[in-house]
Design a protein around this nucleic acid. Sequence first.
DNA 1: AGACCCCTGGAC
DNA 2: GTCCAGGGGTCT
Length: 276
Amino acid sequence: MPELPEVETIAQGLRPLLTHRTITGIPHLAPHLNPQGPNSLIEKLIGQQIQGVSRRGKLLFLDLSPTERIAFHLRMTGRLGMSPAGEPPGAHVHLLINLDNQSALYFQDQRKFGTFRHYTEQELNAWPFYSRMGPEPLSVGEEEFLGRVEGRRGRIKALLLNQEVVAGIGNIYADESLFRAAIHPATPASALSRPRITSLYHALQNVLREAITAGGSSIRDYRTAAGLVGTFQNAFQVYGRKDQPCLRCAESLRTTKVAGRTTCYCPTCQPEPVSG
DNA sequence: AGACCCCTGGAC
DNA sequence: GTCCAGGGGTCT
C-alpha cells in the first residue's frame, strides 16, 4: 500500500504524538513478525524514550537513540495508528506499544506482509535493502537523477520501482509521474533523451508533493495516523482508470504489465517507443 | 525479465 | 469458484 507520500503522511501524523514519549509496555506482539524472539524485542524497548519519527523511502522509523531505532515497512496493507492504552487489539493488530501518557501505538496488517524490527545503526547498515537504497526523490538533484537513469538498461517504470535507483516510489506514483511526463512505461531508459528524463524528474517531484499535501492516496487500506483517508486518489490521472477517458486527450486508457505490475497509461499521450 | 512466494479479502 | 491488490524476496 503505502508509498512515499503515505509513509510521509503517517510519519508527520505520528511525530507529535510519539516524540518524547516513553515506552512502558508491549502488551501484544505477534510471534510470526518477531524472528528474534519476543523477549529480545521487549527488553530492547521497555523504558526507552522515543526521540523522533523519521522516514527513508517506504521505511518509517521510531528513533530511540542516535544508534537505535525501530523500522517499520508497511508493504501492502500495514497501518500504524494510536489507540487508548489497554484497548484490546482489533483484527490483524500485530504489535501494541504502550506509552507513558495512556496512549498506545498499534501496528495492524491484514495481509501480514509488513515487517518491523529493532535495529542498531550497525545492523541497519548491514541490511542491503536499507544500505543500497537510492536517494530520496524529493531531495535528489536533477543532475544526480539524470545520472541514475540516463543510458541504463531496463524499462523506465522498472527503474522507478527499483528502490536502489530512487527510494519510495511504488506502482501508483510510477504510473502517475510517467503519464505527466508523457513517457510510455515500457520505454527503455536508454531511449530517453536528457530533456525527457528531466521532465520525468519534475513530474515525479510534483506528483509526490501534491500527494503528500493531499494526505496520500487511499485505494483500500491506507489510513493516516489519525485513521483518516487520504484524498490524492481523487487526483489520479491514470492509476486505476483503465478504459476511462484520458483527461488530456479523451482516448481510452489501457493497461499492460511492466515489471510484473499492472500499468495504466494513455496510448496516445504516452506512445510506444519507436524501436522498442 | 518473469514466475512464484508470503497472506487476506473484495469484486465478479 | 477465479482474479486481483500501494511490496519485495528468491530463484530460474
